[in-house]
Structure formats: C-alpha cells, structure tokens
C-alpha cells in the first residue's frame, strides 16, 4: 500500500511538473495534483506550488501511516500551452476512466515529448504576428516587410539564446537590442520609413503577456507568492526590453545625433 501511494504521488508530481514548466497558473497545478491523487483514492493531500517549485504531502486518513512528501524544483520555464491543455484534459479524464499508474505515466511521457509546431512555422508566425501588428499601428508596406524580417531574426536569436540557457533578462535585452539595431539599419538603407513602428512591432513577440496574465490570475486565486513572483517577472522582462532598446537608441542619438 505504501509503494502504491508513492507511485500515485510520483504520477501527480510528474503531471504538475509538466504543467508548471509550460506556463500554467499555479492554482491549476495545485488543483491537478490534488485531483489526480483523489482519483486514486488518496484524499488527505496538500499541495503547495510556486513558480519555482512543487511541494506535495500525503497523509493517511487515520494517521497510522507515515506521511510522504515530494519536492520538485522547477528550473526552466517555457510556454507551451498545448501541453498544459493536454495534461488538464488527462487529469479530468481520470475521473471517468482510471488508468493504471504505469499507463498514466506513459501518457504523461507522451505529452512531455509531444512536439511543438515545427520551427520554420513558428519563425514564420513570429514574423506574421509582428508585421500584422505593425499594420494595425498603420505601418505601410515597407515597414510591414521590414518588421516581418526583423522579428523573424529576433525570434531566431532569442531561440538560440534560450537553447544555450541564457537567463530571460539577457534574452529579452539582446532580442530588443537586435530589433532596434536592425530597424536602424533598415531605415538607413531605405527599406523602412517609420523607425518607431518597426521597433514597436518587432519587440511585440518579446512582451510579457503571459507573465501579466498569470500574475493576475494567480493573485485572485489567493496565491499571493506566485502572483508577486510573476508580477516581478513581468516587470523585469519589461525593464530588460526597454534597456535593450534604450542602449541602442542612446548610442545612435548621442553618437550620430539621431540622424543618419
């Protein structure tokens, strides 16, 4: 019975880990862990999740057995809402069909290794998202094309930095610095007209929309620690983007006088 509890807990923590790593809100992770444990008949379970770690404890009903605690440290976080959605559906399906724990673990492994959209599509979409955002701001065809190109390059650069485990401050600062440098170059060469529109639409893909949304959603569910942590993440991301743009524009204005 004891081994059984351990394995249920391992399954629940594994599900929680996948969700938290891929950008779920913390209350959703806590709910999922509790839901999975309950589906296997363990009702005395407490989970506490922050953006950087998962803590779960299982106690026995009559207190005759020893409590078990799992701690899982989460070091890297990306955004892959497909996996969040799949684990969410999986944990809900446990209510109706009870998989064996081996099967459950296998399903979770499948979800974890589920591929993202191919890279060329994501690069193209980065371009699409920013250039059409530029069109919303009223950019002409030249600005549209240059922000399309620049944001694809920015996406590739940030992706490269992410694979080499640069922290998110460096990723965003370098990304926005590259965006503004290329925008200056494009305007200088005559491929673009409005510098501001090109830069604004190219940094769109870096903006902390996920962090803002999750910060609010965590705070209203009462997870004040996670809410604050994600709020700070959003703030630091914004500062890093601003500093990347700022450094390049500062150099340009103070060395060349803001002209070409």
């Amino acid at each position: 019975m004891k081994a059984d509890r351990r394995r249920v807990l391992a399954l629940a923590v594994c599900a929680g880990e996948i969700m938290l790593k891929n950008g779920a809100e913390t209350y959703r992770v806590e709910d999922t862990i509790v839901r999975i444990c309950k589906a296997y008949g363990i009702s005395n379970v407490e989970s506490f999740v922050t953006p950087t770690g998962i803590f779960v404890t299982v106690d026995y009903e009559n207190g005759s057995d020893e409590p078990i605690t799992f701690i899982k440290r989460i070091k890297t976080r990306t955004i892959d809402l497909n996996k969040v959605s799949k684990v969410n559906t999986f944990s809900r399906s446990l209510m109706d069909t009870r998989y064996s724990i081996e099967n459950g673990l296998r399903i979770l492994k499948d979800i974890e290794s589920y591929p993202t959209y191919p890279k060329y599509i994501r690069v193209f979409c980065a371009g699409l998202a920013s250039s059409f955002f530029g069109a919303l701001l009223g950019a002409g065809i030249l600005d549209f094309l240059s922000s399309f190109t620049i944001s694809m390059i920015v996406f590739l650069a940030v992706n490269y930095l992410e694979r080499h485990q640069a922290n998110f401050f460096i990723q965003n600062a370098l990304g926005s610095a590259i965006a503004s440098l290329l925008a200056l170059l494009f305007v200088y060469l005559g491929f673009g007209i409005n510098l501001d529109k090109i830069i604004i639409s190219s940094i769109m893909i870096l903006l902390p929309g996920v962090a803002i949304t999750n910060a609010v959603r965590d705070s209203i569910s009462g997870d004040l620690i996670s809410g604050t942590a994600r709020g700070v993440e959003a703030l630091i991301t914004a500062i890093s983007i601003a500093s990347g743009v700022g450094i390049i524009m500062n150099l340009w204005i103070h060395s060349l006088g803001g002209r070409f």
């Binding site: 809402l81 996996k83 994501r122 979409c125 371009g127 059409f132 929309g209």
Partner: peptide, 9 residues
C-alpha cells in the same frame, strides 16, 4: 501568429 508561438492546441 501569437497563438502558434505559444503552441496553442
């Protein structure tokens, strides 16, 4: 474009 970047189902 944004939703594909975030790997939405």
């Amino acid at each position: 474009g944004f939703s594909l970047l975030f790997n939405i189902p």
